[in-house]
Simulated scan of single mutants.
Amino acid sequence: MSKYLLDKFLYTVDRDPELVERYRADPQGLVRWWEAERANTVLNCHTAEASTWLRFTPAERAALIAHDHVALFQLGAHPFLTLTLFIAMFERDNTEPLEYQKAYAARLAHFDLPYPDIAT
Rank of each mutant, 00 (worst) to 15 (best):
M1I: 11
S2Y: 12
Y4E: 11
L5A: 06
L5K: 12
L5F: 13
L5G: 06
L6A: 04
D7W: 15
K8C: 13
K8S: 14
F9E: 14
F9N: 10
L10H: 01
Y11G: 10
Y11K: 15
Y11L: 15
T12A: 11
T12H: 07
D14I: 01
D14L: 07
D14Y: 06
R15W: 08
R15N: 15
R15L: 14
D16I: 09
E18Q: 09
V20I: 15
E21R: 15
Y23R: 08
R24Q: 09
R24D: 14
A25Y: 13
D26T: 12
D26C: 07
P27H: 03
P27E: 04
Q28N: 13
L30R: 02
W33G: 09
W34M: 01
W34A: 07
W34G: 00
E35W: 04
E35L: 03
A36L: 10
A36G: 01
A36F: 05
R38M: 04
A39Y: 03
A39P: 02
A39D: 00
A39M: 07
N40Y: 03
N40Q: 00
T41E: 02
T41V: 04
T41S: 05
L43C: 00
L43D: 04
N44L: 15
C45K: 15
H46G: 14
T47E: 06
T47M: 00
T47N: 05
T47P: 01
T47Q: 02
A48M: 14
E49R: 10
A50C: 04
S51E: 07
S51T: 13
W53K: 12
W53C: 08
R55Y: 08
F56Q: 00
T57M: 01
T57S: 03
P58N: 05
A59F: 07
A59I: 08
A59R: 07
R61Q: 07
R61L: 04
R61F: 09
A63L: 10
I65E: 11
I65T: 14
A66I: 11
A66H: 03
H67K: 08
D68T: 02
D68I: 04
H69A: 04
H69S: 01
V70I: 10
A71Q: 12
A71M: 08
L72A: 03
Q74H: 06
Q74S: 02
G76H: 01
P79C: 11
F80W: 14
T84P: 02
L85M: 10
L85T: 03
F86V: 05
I87M: 05
I87F: 02
A88C: 10
F90K: 03
E91D: 13
E91H: 07
E91Q: 01
D93Y: 04
N94S: 03
T95S: 06
T95P: 05
T95V: 00
T95I: 00
E96T: 06
E96M: 07
E96D: 14
L98I: 07
Y100D: 00
Q101S: 00
A103N: 11
A103M: 12
A106D: 12
A106F: 01
R107V: 12
R107W: 09
R107E: 06
L108N: 05
L108Q: 08
A109S: 14
A109C: 08
A109I: 04
H110G: 11
F111W: 02
F111H: 06
D112I: 14
D112K: 13
P114G: 15
P114F: 13
Y115V: 14
P116K: 12
P116A: 10
D117H: 09
D117Y: 05
D117V: 11
I118Y: 10
A119Q: 14
A119M: 13
